[in-house]
């Protein structure tokens, strides 16, 4: 069983929902990323989603776009991000780490080399936003033997047929995008999310994570009642951005929000 599947199985026994924070690797500078990952785990994160900066983040709103730009100013490359995961693993052998980004850095590195290096560093999952399952065969062929879970998105526009196809290709969990929009969008309608997640559950036994537009502990609590994981990105990255000039305060500010979300989620 992969680290991601193991994590969800354990949480299910405890009747808890996974909290998955997203931060962009290298934002605001590369030295802060690994300590921030540890701090997030201590605050109650179950899985870490680490953004791989890309020059053209088409599916991201302004907050994560600027995070990418800050990270790229320091030249944070996919190889650097894999190195950060390796350093994180030295002190945390258990918490799953997913890399989230766009296909081109992986494509240019080469699928096989990527899978080999990522697995060796202790990467557990890969979510390439602009790679639908239809184009993913070659990448899946090299991820599977290395035990890296391919995480795919589902959206409000996904038809039943697409939900089936995406779930067939995915492992670990599937990521439901709660809004028709980009990261950091205005909030979702929980009723619609609940209905769609119920539809997804009819097609798969994989855990369903929900992300996009989750900003507050109240949002996290609402989503925790319908999904198996709450994914929080822009709300955390905004805090990183606001404190980019006083980096000592970043981890406490991120931890503060995560602790509040964790508490709200565990109340249900």
């Amino acid at each position: 069983m992969s680290r991601i599947s193991g994590c969800f199985a354990q949480l299910e026994q405890q009747n808890r929902v996974a909290l998955i924070p997203f931060v962009t690797a290298g934002d605001p500078n590369p030295d802060l990323t690994v300590p921030l990952m540890h701090a997030m785990v201590a605050a109650g994160a179950n899985i870490i989603e680490l953004g791989v900066p890309f020059s053209d983040p088409m599916a991201d709103g302004p907050v994560i776009q600027r995070a990418s730009e800050r990270a790229l100013k320091h030249g944070t490359s996919l190889r650097d991000v894999i190195g950060m995961v390796a350093r994180f693993r030295q002190d945390d052998p258990n918490t799953p780490v997913i890399l989230m980004g766009y296909l081109n850095p992986v494509e240019v590195m080469g699928y096989e080399l990527f899978a080999e290096m990522a697995a060796e560093a202790g990467v557990d999952g890969l979510l390439t936003v602009d790679l639908p399952p239809e184009e993913a065969d070659d990448l899946l062929d090299v991820l599977h033997p290395e035990g890296i879970d391919p995480i795919f998105l589902l959206a409000p526009t996904s038809t039943e047929e697409r939900i089936r196809r995406v779930c067939d290709a995915a492992s670990g969990f599937v990521y439901y995008v709660s809004v028709k929009g980009i990261t950091g969008s205005a909030s979702f309608a929980i009723g619609e999310v609940a209905a769609k997640v119920a539809g997804i559950r009819k097609q798969t036994r994989l855990p369903v994570g929900v992300g996009f537009g989750i900003k507050t502990p109240e949002n996290a609590q609402a989503v925790a009642q319908v999904g198996d994981a709450v994914i929080v990105g822009s709300a955390l990255v905004s805090r990183v951005e606001a404190l980019a000039g006083s980096t000592d305060e970043i981890a406490p500010a991120v931890v503060e929000l995560l602790v509040a979300m964790r508490r709200a989620m565990d109340l249900i």
Binding site: M58, A59, L103, V129, D130, L131, P132, E134, E135, F152, L153, L154, A155, P156, T157, S158, T159, R162, V166, V177, K180, G181
Partner: peptide
Amino acid sequence: ERGHFGRYGGIFVAETLMEP
């Protein structure tokens, strides 16, 4: 039928755009 010109082309977008 999936938009390939040899190894080029295709559809590389986020899931939300697949159905549109």
